[in-house]
């Protein structure tokens, strides 16, 4: 949100004086160095790898290195079907990431189960246990779609306010940064979803 008169800012920049706000600087630094966790589940992971290769080059957006350890990553791109056997591990990895952290659900399977929805071992979307920031539809989404999703995430970060009621989760003292990990029960996962975040309420909270 601009807290300065734009004409004054442009006038000053022509004189060689660069003025910014702390919020813009903070968000600019964070959005241009989002490091993803090296984490691919299924077919979408191959398009994710293709997006980081020479033709589409995710590195020029700041996602230079895919970190192998969740402790060093900012972004978890859930690329592929999340099965019930894998779900506790996904949530555990999410919990291990330090704040601020983001999740992109890439592909139809990560959003809602995709073509494998009816499977007994398939979790119908990772947003049942973990909050998702950007959803990228597709089966698999093209690398350009992943780039667009990444740019959407960057826009989201850019527009975050540091103070006030709408500040992001990592700046709120009482917002949870770790979510309960489901367990493998006799017939499925226990619990089958996290009621605090799913189903999404109409207010969008």
């Amino acid at each position: 949100m601009p807290l300065m008169d734009e004409r004054l800012r442009t006038e000053l920049s022509r004189q060689g004086v660069f003025v910014t706000t702390l919020e813009e600087l903070y968000n600019w630094g964070r959005k241009n160095s989002v490091w993803p966790l090296g984490f691919g589940l299924a077919c979408c992971a191959i398009e994710m790898i293709a997006a980081s290769m020479a033709r589409w080059d995710l590195a020029r957006f700041g996602a230079e290195v895919f970190r192998p350890s969740p402790r060093q990553a900012d972004l978890m791109i859930v690329a592929g079907t999340v099965t019930k056997k894998m779900a506790p591990q996904v949530v555990r990895l999410y919990n291990q990431m330090p704040e601020p952290k983001y999740v992109i659900a890439m592909g139809a399977c990560a959003i809602s189960g995709g073509p494998f929805r009816e499977g007994y071992n398939v979790l119908q979307g990772i947003d049942r246990y973990v909050p998702v920031d950007v959803h990228i539809p597709g089966c698999p989404p093209r690398p350009e779609a992943l780039l667009h999703g990444f740019m959407t995430l960057q826009k989201l970060i850019e527009e975050q306010e540091l103070t006030g009621a709408r500040r992001p989760r990592h700046l709120q003292v009482d917002a949870p940064s770790e979510f309960p990990i489901p367990e493998h029960g006799a017939h499925g996962l226990v619990p089958s979803h996290n009621p605090a975040i799913w189903p999404p309420s109409e207010s969008g909270a």
């Binding site: 929805r117 009816e118 499977g119 007994y120 071992n121 398939v122 119908q124 006799a186 017939h187 499925g188 089958s192 979803h193």
Partner: peptide
């Protein structure tokens, strides 16, 4: 505990 490929397997409700 189940044997899912059997013809009489009932998938969980959430699926």
């Amino acid at each position: 505990e189940d044997y899912p490929m059997r013809k009489d397997y009932a998938a969980p409700v959430e699926n």
